[in-house]
Write a protein that binds this DNA or RNA. Structure first.
Lengths: 220, 220
DNA sequence: ACGGGGTTGTAATCGCTATGTCATCGCCGG
DNA sequence: CCGGCGATGACATAGCGATTACAACCCCGT
């Protein structure tokens, strides 16, 4: 399954890195931005399920950032971290369109619970993807071809999910790396190629995944 | 969809009525009790998805009421309102079986979010679940396989209940943690794995619970 | 209060397989 | 022929889930 994607925007690098590490331990793909401007860039370019946003940011303030995210076509949910647990702060954040709040200092497990809660609410793509005789049922993490079940490993399923939801468009190996692994993945790896190979084997004949010379894959 | 059913138990009638009104605005069916005894009566007679319970009640104390509700065959979730945000209060409440807590003063939207979160996990599901030769009777808290009774411990039953009501969908270990334990549970525990193991043993052959590599269980 | 069976969580270990690395292969275009 | 890119095969291993053993705890009756 495609992992949940989270962006952490926090200027204190110690906090940011600790958060990122903790979330990654949970199998979440995490990107980090140490200031608001970078955060906004990443939020615009990539697609995240949840954006964890420190309210007190140097440069571009968390409130402004939040508003921009909400106004953008992005569907990301925003979890705002506030310094004090004041009710007024919460209300302000609410008005700006954040989806949840957490006052520092917080318990990591509580943060985790909320991130998952938000991720679950995230507008989910259709539960069942279909392409030709291929069917991918997200809820049961199962794939079948011509009514025959095809057992897949995690990354294989992730790749197939991305390719199928691309609706026939070409997806570069690099995009696959970002979405199924995360942005910190070694750019020189050929893990994608290997996984595509194994995926093709399991899916059998006739071939479903097409290679586009010059760097990309697609399912027509 | 059937509306969510909520009971508010709160002695301050101003607060109680405000809450009720706010919840009704959200399309929730709300009953109100202004003291613990009445609250208990209603809780026993009707079926609620969520019971919002003021801890500090005249007459029958909130703690006692909570315990009675939890011990009863009712499947209602309890959201306890505590006066102070003291950690001790929170821990006590959870030990008594409350599913969540909220410290006064609270933001209404936060209360709402939590009520929905709790309600989501307490569907007014059928009283008897069936899957293959497995039968789970919620009211009697009993399980049988191929007409043979299978005695189960509480957590085991909880897990089985979640899996059976998932209708063949995959449930992640983490979702099980949230629903069978509570949302503040230690995310690094392997309690789920152990309980699944014991559950499998008691259920015998052939295996009912399938493991989906990549983090999940299901009953096909 | 006391004791005991049953229940539950923790931690250590085991075995397996999914996954990544590396080296090689094969094809296509100059 | 050669250079480059993607496919492939072989291998090493990290990490996950299963399992075991144990300790803490809870609830019940005496």
């Amino acid at each position: 399954m495609e992992p949940m994607r989270v962006l952490v925007v926090e200027d204190n690098s110690v906090v940011a890195d600790a958060l990122a590490e903790g979330l990654r331990d949970q199998g979440i793909a995490v990107d980090v931005a140490y200031d608001g401007t970078t955060g906004l860039d990443k939020a615009m370019v990539n697609t995240y399920d949840v954006i964890i946003l420190d309210r007190d940011l140097p440069g571009l303030h968390g409130d402004a950032l939040c508003q921009q995210i909400v106004d953008s076509p992005s569907t990301s949910r925003v979890l705002m971290l506030t310094a004090a647990g004041l009710v007024e702060e919460r209300v302000e954040g609410l008005n700006l369109g954040a989806d949840d709040y957490l006052a520092k200092p917080f318990d990591f497990s509580e943060l985790l619970a909320r991130v998952h809660a938000l991720g679950r609410r995230s507008p989910s793509t259709p539960p069942v993807l279909t392409r030709g005789d291929l069917v991918l049922d997200r809820a049961r993490r199962s794939v079948s071809r011509a009514d025959r079940p095809v057992p897949l490993a995690r990354k294989e399923l992730g790749i197939l999910e991305v390719l199928m939801s691309a609706e026939g468009a070409v997806v570069t190996a690099e995009q696959l790396l970002e979405r199924v692994w995360d942005e910190h993945a070694d750019p020189f790896t050929n893990a994608v190629a290997v996984t595509i190979l194994r995926l093709r084997r399991k899916l059998g004949e006739p071939p479903v995944i097409e290679t586009i010379a010059g760097g990309g894959y697609r399912i027509p």
